[in-house]
Design a binder for these strands. Structure first.
Lengths: 219, 219, 219, 219
DNA sequence: TATGAATGAGCGTTCATTCAT
DNA sequence: TATGAATGAACGCTCATTCAT
């Protein structure tokens, strides 16, 4: 094997470093994924780092190379998993100006059903609902980054709908929570009773939208 | 001291027993109350029997005279606390036959706001939402005894409202959850964000009822 | 078995309590004794609570019924073990007024040789010397309660000796440590080299006393 | 770039190697210096290789290129640091034959005060006193290489002093430890109480020498 | 019934050591 | 040589459960 030149050596060192850091990042992701599963299954307090490590395929000590302690792992998990959601909520779903408020809310509902309800992200939401009271900083973060923005976006849609005459009850703008409530209930319901009493979230949301906007015209 | 007759002896024994059992019942209640507070504050796994005993003013061992173990205490707690609620839901709130569906739902909402939202019972609901996933038998019990009955009662009211023409959207009967959803959201919201972003549950429920039944006539 | 009267019951309860507290005290002592051995053998950091518990014949958790944590156990150990020493040092060994300073120092040396050098108390001193630097509060305590008092008592003896003309070098009063130094060295020496190079502490102290007071008259 | 001749190549390789070994030696020294600080500050068991590596400016793994394990590093440290001391003690300080024993002991004391008391070497001695009991091979090494030789040298001085009539108490030759004891005490004292109760080691040693040789003549 | 001291399995965390790069 | 991510055994501490009193 020819002795590498200084330049080559440097590059291979960089490559090695990058390869290592890629590996490290993969491990980090594996830990987060495993932690999500365990936390969802057992709750924060009852989840065991041993199980998380085993599920992630790393040694227990490795977790501590990436996270300060169990709580940091938990919080990081929730925060990280919310970033994409935040993006979705910050960019209101409509683009053109001619969209009806109803279409906007329907898109919102579809996005919810597709991206959250049946996915790991739904588990995150469930986790926040379950454990949030014990982690004030987490629920505050969640409030600021997700709830407040979601509520604000929903408010805008409602006001737009009122302005366009699609929504009759002007009071609704004061409680955007009403619009989101069935989605919330769907998440909690699936977590608790879904196994033996599944709830058709999509259909329920459709009925709820009809309630807000009036029944659909003949399609 | 004169030797007591057999009859006297028996009676005093019964009295003692009854006195003792009264004491025992009081202790049991104290333990349940203390357990509720601790479970709500820390969650099932993180709550300590030491703290529950201290709060109840009994020794740790005493808990085991009344409950098989920590989980039994938890489940008993949730089941016991729901009994009154179950009663309320089983007896539909309407009395006379001429009541409107709207009045019935409004009574339902008032009952909820008064009896649950700001009380310990709200904590029970929160507990079930938080821990239910880890206690399938508990959430099944809750489903059977509370949710199913509540949903059924709500269904009847909705169908009554549809029949009376108070509710236009007949589809609503398929998803009584929609009617209850804001109440659910209120409970969760208060538990998570109530400290810095309180939600006026009563006002929200009123708006929601307007959404279902149409706006109130001039009062 | 006859039913006990109330008075008997009360007494037996008191007895039980006292029996229990006696047992508890015994356990506490056993833990302290075991801890001393382990700390002496391995040092504070390397000593294992498992080993201490096993040696004391109690479960690991029992240690925590008596001491807040490992460090508290260690400090309590050193403080407790010093109490008798403190007594000895506070009560100067002389009694009558006609005792010579030499006799007083000789008594001091004898007490040291008998009560400390070859006993567990010597281990305590060794422990303080070994670990004191890592436990400032402990070495301060030791300084205040033991060293300072011992040095003060020694100072008084030296000044008494100077006043009586038994000690020529008046400067010695400024450094009572000199008088105690060989005793200190004996302790350290035995701990480090005693196994293969034993040191006759008694003889050495005698020579040292001769050095201070001049040679003994013909005995 | 001209291709180097074989000889040139060899030389440059040797140079490189030597340069490398110089680097390696420097690293070794840096590790030893860092280890001394950490071991002194925390004790053997509580010192962390991470901290030693960080303080030495090397990676943790590098330590293992120079030392087999933590204990080897510790022992090497103590052994290495004692080499100069050993030299000093092996070569008795006197040169001419006319020096008095007192002068020799005074030189000894001065050397001690200058070279050990306030320096890192004093820390080494403290380390041996603290940890020696847990490292029999180390304290044996220390005994053989330092203590025994020091004691022997001190014995010779004492006997010389007795022969010259400078020392009256012939028994002192049996316990040279007595002469060194205050120095030992000074080291331990500074480590434990020095922060708030400093001890003037030089003055104390002077008084002690007066005790052995009698007061100084008018100076 | 009631107590609370005692137990010991279990968990979070640390850190000496290894090894692929 | 040098690195530092990865390992996993080990340890301090907790707490549900038991049981002698």
């Amino acid at each position: 094997m020819p002795k590498p030149t200084a330049a080559e050596s440097k590059r291979s060192a960089r490559d090695a470093a990058s390869k290592r850091s890629v590996r490290a990042l993969e491990r980090r992701e594996a830990i987060l994924a495993a932690a999500l599963d365990e936390f969802v299954a057992k709750g924060f307090a009852a989840a065991r780092l041993d199980d998380i490590a085993a599920r992630a395929g790393v040694a227990k000590g490795t977790i501590y190379l990436h996270f300060a302690d169990k709580e940091a792992l938990f919080q990081e998990l929730v925060r990280t998993a919310l970033v994409p959601l935040i993006g979705q909520l910050a960019n209101p779903p409509q683009a053109g100006g001619t969209a009806s408020a109803r279409a906007m809310v329907e898109t919102f509902a579809e996005t919810f059903a597709r991206e959250i309800a049946g996915t790991k992200r739904g588990d995150i939401v469930r986790l926040v609902i379950s454990e949030g009271a014990r982690f004030p900083s987490l629920s505050e973060f969640y409030y600021r980054e997700v709830v407040e923005r979601g509520i604000a976006a929903m408010s805008r849609m409602i006001e737009y709908g009122i302005a366009r005459g699609e929504i009759r009850n002007a009071e609704l703008a004061r409680f955007p929570q009403i619009v989101v409530a069935p989605a919330m209930v769907a998440i909690v319901w699936q977590g608790l009773f879904g196994a033996y009493a599944p709830l058709d979230a999509v259909a329920m949301l459709r009925v709820h939208i009809d309630l807000i906007f009036g029944p659909r015209r003949a399609e």
